[in-house]
Design a protein around this nucleic acid. Structure first.
Length: 477
RNA sequence: GGCGACGUACCCAAGUGGCAAGGGAGAGGUCUGCAAAACCUUUAUUCAGCGGUUCGAAUCCGCUCGUCGCCUCCA
């Protein structure tokens, strides 16, 4: 609310109540929806990792003008549209590794609660009914504009506020809308109608999290008017502070412009996942701080893919080392690695505690990767070396686990890459080729060995000759 | 017009008062049959520009320029 970073102190010690605006189920999701979902998923995971008890609510708007329009266009009932795109949403989210919220309420299951809230607002003089509609009277709520830092006079003078004769002021917004012919409706004290958009979040958040709670999140485009209106409704109704900490993720841009439905410059999650591994998308979205804009491009996603590949290459090295390391105690150059290992968690916690700086956290991971590689390059062996390497692997897995990335085996990663890059041959035929080449190498028939290697490379497979055999991987990038 | 955010190397990006993380790309090297991977060296005496505060500024303040966002549905 201050517009600045603040120390996080939950209202109830050790417990975090968090409400995040989900989607309106009227169309397939684009990458912008993915960003919001992933950002708040990580925030939840990190808070839990730190031992806090988190209750996470994420709503789904299943009644709204856009849904009604879409339904009319497709000549089906509104709930068919809502159901269809809710399912699509969950499919996308599953693919992206976004965990489910603890509660995922639908607007239409909470009509009763909304009507109660609206009634209360009328009773308290903050809202007025007009011909079956109910409006919130903004001028009655003195704090209006405190989140979006707008003042009522400026808004009034703005020519873009739509004029509606029935409203007392152009700034007033609908709590309840009377239904027109053929539209879905619910019975209410003001006649047949449906709820306005903002009221569902007020009614559902207070039902599941209480009148005051800790974190409310969503995309930055929801700040005004949605979240501003939520504050007005909620605080007018309860007389209590609504939300302690507001968190808003930045936009995804395409050619510097906000990716959005109305501009038509959006990429759907489905389309992106046709070309990129889900982990790549996740990594990409975490590689910039959540509040900053992030430019979407193939080059960016390709870079993310290369970064992840570097990670899995090192995991492979770690595995190889643990399988083959000798027993003789050879310390190698372990000093830097040991130093980094002992400082690593503190560094990670520190940067994540500072407003969830995942980009910085990823940087630390690659520092550790480099030190681990350096250590392995120094050809260590023996029990102590193994322990260091095991510790490294565990730390990487732990931190990756919090961000829900880096949680595959290298084999799974390369198989997944193979699929997404649509490489058209089987692992068996690949192994056959490798065996054939191995034979050639034994005969020192380098020409043949190189031909096979080049042939595979042209198809997107990289071979790596190691002491005790040849391994394959999919060419990243 | 009002309000707000941002501008860090060739590209992406962290850093909000004490010697500029990390990734990609480029160049050179070590290793290798040759590669790949990895590692090493190298690429910002400088953080859009100008001025101020300070022992000290990418970081705080002011102005200028540039980009974007919100003010209407939006993640």
């Amino acid at each position: 609310m201050s517009g600045k970073k603040e120390d996080f102190v939950p209202l109830v010690p050790e417990q975090v109540r968090m409400y995040v605006c989900g989607i309106t189920a009227y169309d397939v999701c684009h990458l912008g929806h993915a960003r919001s979902a992933i950002v708040f998923d990580i925030i939840k995971r990190y808070l839990r990792y730190k031992g806090l008890k988190v209750t996470h609510v994420r709503n789904i708007t299943d009644i709204d003008d856009k849904i009604i329009n879409r339904a009319a266009k497709e000549n089906v009932s509104y709930d068919v549209i809502a159901k269809k795109y809710t399912e699509e949403y969950y499919r996308d989210m599953n693919m992206l590794g976004v965990s489910r919220a603890d509660l995922e309420p639908n607007a239409t299951d909470h009509i009763k609660e909304m009507i109660e809230t609206i009634k209360g607002l009328i009773d308290k003089g903050y809202a007025y009914p007009v011909n079956g509609d109910v409006y919130f009277e903004v001028s009655k709520f003195s704090g209006y504009g405190k989140l979006s830092k707008k003042n009522v006079d400026d808004l009034m003078s703005g020519a873009r506020v739509e004029v509606d004769e029935r409203k007392r002021s152009p700034l007033d917004f609908a709590l309840w809308k009377s239904s027109k012919e053929g539209e879905p409706w619910w019975e209410s004290p003001w006649g047949k109608g449906r709820p306005g958009w903002h009221i569902e979040c007020t009614a559902m958040s207070s039902k599941y999290l209480g009148e005051s709670f800790d974190i409310h999140g969503g995309g930055a485009d929801l700040i005004f008017p949605h979240h501003e209106n939520e504050i007005a409704q909620s605080e007018a109704y309860t007389g209590k502070p609504f939300v302690k900490y507001w968190m808003h993720n930045g936009f995804i841009t395409v050619a510097k412009e906000k990716m959005s439905k109305s501009l038509g410059n959006f990429f759907t999650i489905k389309d992106i996942l046709e070309k990129y591994e889900p982990e790549v998308v996740r990594y990409f979205l975490l590689s910039t701080h959540y509040r900053s804009p992030i430019e979407f491009s193939d080059a960016q996603l390709t870079e993310s893919e290369l970064s992840i590949d570097r990670y899995y290459s090192t995991v492979t090295r770690i595995k190889d080392f643990l399988e083959t390391a000798g027993a003789a105690e050879k310390p190698g150059t372990s000093a830097d690695l040991e130093k980094l290992l002992s400082a690593f968690k503190d560094k990670f916690h520190h940067t994540m505690n500072d407003d969830f700086n995942t980009a910085s956290a990823l940087g630390f991971i690659f520092e550790l990767i480099r030190e681990a590689n350096r250590f392995l390059d120094s050809k260590p062996s023996g029990q102590k070396a193994k322990e260091l390497v095991i510790k490294t692997g565990e730390l990487l897995a732990e931190i990756g686990g919090v961000m829900n990335i880096f949680n595959k085996t290298p084999e799974e990663w390369y198989r997944s890459l193979m699929k997404v890059k649509k490489l058209e041959f089987s692992e068996e035929s690949l192994l056959l080729k490798i065996a054939e080449r191995q034979e050639a190498r034994k005969q020192k028939d380098w020409a043949k060995a190189d031909t096979i290697r080049k042939e595979l490379e042209a198809k997107g497979i990289i071979l790596e000759d190691k002491k005790d055999g040849t391994t394959w991987k999919v060419k990243a990038g």
